[in-house]
């Protein structure tokens, strides 16, 4: 079984049943996973920030929810993915308590959902918020997407 790690500001796809897609150590970041049951195509993107307004030119679209989600979904379609038969989940979006400057987690969640809605898509499962780190895992063989907070049991999404 090959573990494909989806690191900060990366997106990865696979249609091999022996693969798992994993985003480790999500803090305020969001991992968005999509799995098409009919073609067994899965994708995952690891988004860091909500808005690309902070960059002067669009040279790192995958870092941001507003530019990353469209790039990710278009690539999913290009690879043969079908939205009608797919499961979409998100995990991450943790927040620091006590300071609004650092509530990037909440902003990320809202921005990802907004970007999905532009494609008439919404999430069917989520494990978000709080202040713990998480891992999101797509098991291609079982077709199971699960999330785990460190030291806690796995949640199937």
């Amino acid at each position: 079984m090959a573990e494909i790690r989806v690191k900060l500001a990366e997106m990865r796809f696979s249609n091999k049943s022996e693969d798992t897609l994993v985003a480790h150590g999500l803090g305020a970041c969001i991992a968005l996973a999509i799995f098409d049951r009919t073609t067994s195509l899965a994708g995952m993107i690891h988004i860091v920030m909500p808005s690309s307004d902070v960059q002067s030119k669009n040279d790192h679209p995958v870092r941001f929810a507003d530019t990353g989600v469209p790039v990710f979904l278009k690539e999913f379609m290009r690879l043969g993915g079908n939205f009608a038969a797919c499961k979409i989940v998100i995990a991450g979006g943790a927040n620091m308590p006590s300071n609004s400057i650092f509530n990037i987690g909440d902003q990320n969640v809202l921005a990802v959902k907004k970007a999905l809605s532009k494609f008439n898509l919404s999430v069917s499962g989520e494990d978000i918020g709080g202040n713990n780190g998480r891992t999101l895992n797509v098991d291609m063989k079982q077709g199971v997407i699960s999330s785990r907070v460190f030291g806690c049991p796995v949640i199937v999404l």
Partner: peptide
């Protein structure tokens, strides 16, 4: 930590 770079127990808390 917020960026999730090597966060473990304690998370972003």
């Amino acid at each position: 930590s917020i960026m999730g770079l090597g966060i473990g127990a304690g998370g972003v808390d």
